[in-house]
Design a protein around this nucleic acid. Structure first.
Length: 309
DNA sequence: TCCCAGGGAGGAT
DNA sequence: ATCCTCCATGGG
């Protein structure tokens, strides 16, 4: 059964650009599958697996989303629950115009004009976001996406839909804690990260790491706790805190952010990655995560590797 | 062939 | 605190 519904412009605080958002390489989850002018993915809603297709409609300043929901049965309750999930996922309550207005004099405005409507994505599965974040270290966006897809296909459960689509769920910590390191490396292409994936999964299974508990602590304390886990350093911790837990003051600093912050705000002088992160948090406060994703996506899209040093 | 990718651990200084 | 080197793997 397939039912179409809409998320109205009145439910979206400011602009929204679906393409920019989906392609910005956020480690909340692997990138969605493209589907003629839209994207599709699957989520467990009200104990049922729901396939949803999302299409961008309306104008950039007054966007709306057309959502097609496929499941065995689809009623109003399931539609509303799915739309509620999508509103949280795309953080549609974040007032982007306020963000743009607050920093209209900042070097960031170039990214504003090119990437207007880009939004943070809030993961629904913290474990999936953590594993994606671990996979992202020292790997391209394309490669960590491949790793995550291979992990789903190798260790997840297949879910079939009435329209013939087959989706693989992300495995639970119990499953990955029992995985063999050589299988993660050779089958899922994780390389040396397989060891980190198994170690983190085991800590979760043993109850020594509780991802759902992180949001009950202040940002700094949650970050310290995460960094005690082997394989989780400053950047991976900030990725989970931003894209998973939803601390919007977190600003993951990777090689791209290190370059662009040094260039735009420090006259190309050498600064440490820690200093770059602290600078972003001090300057942008609760918008630091947004500033980070705008700069990251902008640098990756419009700079190219060779023009930056 | 060489260099790089949304880094982190362990070590030396 | 800052600076090495090594860690698997695929892509350019």
């Amino acid at each position: 059964m397939r039912v179409e519904t809409f998320i109205a412009a009145s439910d979206i605080a400011g602009p929204f650009n679906l393409n920019h958002t989906v392609h910005s390489g956020q480690t909340s989850e692997p990138e969605w599958q493209p589907l003629n002018n839209g994207y599709w993915d699957v989520e467990l809603v009200n104990q049922r697996y729901v396939k949803y297709e999302v299409y961008s409609e309306g104008t950039p300043s007054s966007p709306r989303l057309r959502v097609a929901i496929t499941s065995e049965t689809v009623d109003d309750e399931l539609c509303n629950a799915t739309k509620k999930y999508l509103r949280a996922l795309f953080r549609l309550d974040d007032n982007l115009e306020e963000f743009y207005r607050s920093f209209r004099g900042d070097p960031l405005v170039n990214a504003f004009s090119h990437l207007r409507g880009l939004r943070l994505m809030q993961a629904s599965n913290l474990f999936e976001s953590l594993i994606c974040s671990i996979c992202s270290q020292h790997a391209s966006v394309k490669m960590w996406n491949l790793m995550a897809q291979l992990i789903k296909r190798t260790y997840g459960e297949p879910v079939a839909f009435p329209d013939g689509a087959v989706f693989y769920t992300f495995p639970k910590p119990e499953k990955l804690s029992a995985a063999l390191e050589r299988d993660l490396e050779s089958i899922c292409k994780t390389g040396y990260r397989g060891e980190y994936i198994i170690a983190a999964s085991k800590l979760i299974v043993e109850g020594k790491l509780n991802l759902n508990h992180l949001r009950d602590f202040p940002y700094d304390e949650a970050r310290r706790k995460l960094m005690e886990v082997p394989g989780i350093g400053p950047k991976v911790a900030d990725c989970l805190l931003l894209y998973g837990v939803g601390f919007t003051e977190a600003a993951p600093v990777d090689v791209w952010m290190h370059r662009i912050v040094s260039k735009l705000y420090f006259g190309n002088t050498r600064i440490s990655k820690e200093k770059a992160g602290k600078f972003l948090r001090d300057r942008f406060h609760k918008w630091a995560g947004y500033a980070q994703i705008y700069l990251f996506h902008y640098a990756r899209s419009f700079w190219g590797k060779k023009s930056v040093h």
